[in-house]
Amino acid sequence: MFGRSAIVNIRSIGHHTVDAVRRFGYASRFLALTIAGSGASFRRLRLLIRELYFTGVLSLIIVLVSGLFVGMVLGLQGYHTLQTYGSESALGVLVALSLVRELGPVVSGLLFASRAGSAMTAEIGLMKATEQLAAMEMMAVDPISRVVAPRFWAGVISMPLLAALFSAMGIFGGYLVGVVLIGVDEGSFWSQMNAAVDFRNDILNGVVKSFVFGVAVTWISLFEGYDAPPTAEGVSGATTRTVVTSSLAILGLDFLLTSFMFRGF
């Protein structure tokens, strides 16, 4: 009896592993096909610009507003902690480094996954459910290069831009609270920030992070949409999975990238 249930358990572990590997392989093949079929989205820029509008421009409001508020909260909290050590002039360094290195790419990535990623999944999932993708194939139009690839490149391009805007907005928020509201010396706020933030080590690494997150989030959202069961239930499940999986992917990748980029200092 015990032996039998053990065998069932082991079998289910094996089943899940095989399923995960198969799915990952399918997803990788999907990514390779997308990149291979992306010529059309650069030859016909109209497709790319349309998708840039939907993924990038429409995510602007939420990214800018959250950036501003994250920066303002960092300014407030950082001031209260630094004040106890009499080093409130380091507020600029605290705000800038935490935004540029971590919060900018990660928080804008999470926002991007829930704002643009879920929309992409739902759109492609519905296109599949209503057999629009199949209709395109019937007309000898490759749905991957016509529908998927422009969305992929739009996501990859807009994510670093959104992260940079988030960081810049956050630093402005920190400046508003720290200098304008509380009255930290403006000169030391900017000059200490200038001295501590390195272009290559901090800012470029932040850009690399946001680029990686952009690829991961867009890939996950497009694949979930493309792979969704063609039912209302299937599309809603795929949308949920997109947000959960891409958020977890962002956090995991962030830890990995940070441990490679910022060790030693």
């Binding site: 990038g56 800038a96 670093p160 831009l161 960081s167 200038n194 272009f199 800012i203």
Partner: peptide
């Protein structure tokens, strides 16, 4: 559509430039 996307890309690149010049030590 073109205008909005153009504005978005310019704003993003501008933010990067601000980060490099004003925040970083470029």
């Amino acid at each position: 559509l073109d205008l909005w996307v153009g504005l978005f890309v310019c704003a993003g690149l501008g933010a990067l430039l601000i980060l490099a010049m004003k925040v970083g030590n470029m």
